[in-house]
Design a protein around this nucleic acid. Structure first.
Lengths: 214, 214
DNA sequence: GTACGTATACTCGTGTACGAGTACTTGCCG
DNA sequence: CGGCAAGTACTCGTACACGAGTATACGTAC
């Protein structure tokens, strides 16, 4: 499949808000923030204007005149083109359907965790769990308050998703810590030995040699 | 806390491999790939050389001479500096401890899912679940094979993490689909009405007006 | 009426990711 | 032994993210 012309999900959000009615960039940012979308989509002014220009260059939006509020600077209103409407639905459908390989920083950290001594690593993982439990609790309260105010859950699914995935991660880490502590995670002995002596266990070196043969 | 000088986790991986012994960039890429780190850390030649140059500029690594293999081009070996060693441990510790706000594309898609008609959205989510179940199953087999070959689980935790988080996401989506289907997800009626009439339900418009007052 | 803080609206220089390319060597197969 | 494909080693031009800044208007408080 051909690559998409746009890559930043902020572009998708811009298309979605313009689809409702023509808008100018600053207003789009305000609207996305008032809907608390900044938690799921990065919203920076620099990126926003770059994205708007790129959407226009690709024919997904077009200038639909200017307006002004009092004696403030004029601002350009953008409206959605037919191509833009199609791109919005097509790209959104693709993102809903196709899992994308992301590279979370925690996953990168896990892949290098052997660099840290075992006890140190476990202490840090415990701190992560505690910090994340606190964040999860406070976000659940905030979410409950927003639902209390009448916002339908349909508009909060991404926040629920984020929260539940963080909770799932913490469950996973607790299980990992348990297996590290009771030694059932294979490799714990070698890990300790490596940090005690500075030498990788012989069987690790042999494994590495084998893998580089592939 | 001051911002880090490096931002790309690939830099962390470079530091970790150079810490074992001095290496040249192309070899670092080969080594990371032989260890299957490309699943958790993006490895592109262009990025790699940029990251190596940046690490050198910040004093985390330094050129430690050149070598050549036959009549191939000479290549520069890099070794870790004391600052680099400290940065490796400090940055890795931070990534293990501190949850980072990421913006997965699926979360962005969820935040705009109302743009799609409900039945269409549900069908797409079902396809995602199916595709991801298949990926999870095939990755579990691959993981089992790698462990069968003797690689300790310590070197596979990031793959286990990735798999288990994908499985957790699928469980979450199945639950969401259930609540969408039985109507217990608040907002389903309004969502259907919106796509049937093209008009947002009155109570949604009133809510939005309130929220923009904040 | 003035001062000042906040809002509105946007820009630009810098840093960086990276894809596709370059140049040459080596090894394998016919 | 020669041709060719793959490997080795790296580069560069382009695209874009974005932080911190700019300029001006407006509203509030004294």
């Amino acid at each position: 499949m051909a690559k998409r012309k746009m890559s930043n999900p902020l572009a998708l959000a811009v298309l979605a808000t313009i689809r409702e009615q023509p808008r100018h960039p600053y207003e789009i940012a305000q609207l996305l923030r008032s809907r608390h979308k900044e938690h799921s989509i990065k919203i920076n002014y620099g990126s926003l204007y770059t994205v708007v220009q790129s959407l226009e260059r690709h024919g997904f939006i077009e200038a639909a005149g200017t307006e002004r509020d009092g004696r403030r600077p004029e601002r350009t209103l953008y409206s959605l083109t037919e191509a833009g409407s199609a791109e919005l639905v097509d790209w959104l459908s693709e993102l809903v359907t196709e899992p994308v390989k992301e590279h979370p920083r925690f996953e990168a950290a896990l892949s290098l965790i052997g660099v840290l001594p075992p006890d140190e690593a476990m202490a840090l993982l415990e701190r992560r769990v505690v910090a994340q439990d606190a964040w999860i609790a406070s976000q659940r309260e905030e979410l409950a308050a927003v639902m209390e105010s009448g916002v339908p859950r349909l508009f909060l699914v991404e926040s629920e998703y984020s929260l539940d995935m963080r909770a799932a991660e913490n469950d996973w880490i607790r299980q990992l810590l348990k297996e590290m502590a009771d030694g059932s995670l294979q490799g714990m002995d070698g890990w300790r030995q490596y940090h005690a002596t500075g030498e990788a266990p012989r069987e690790w070196q042999e494994l590495e040699a084998e893998r580089q043969q592939d």
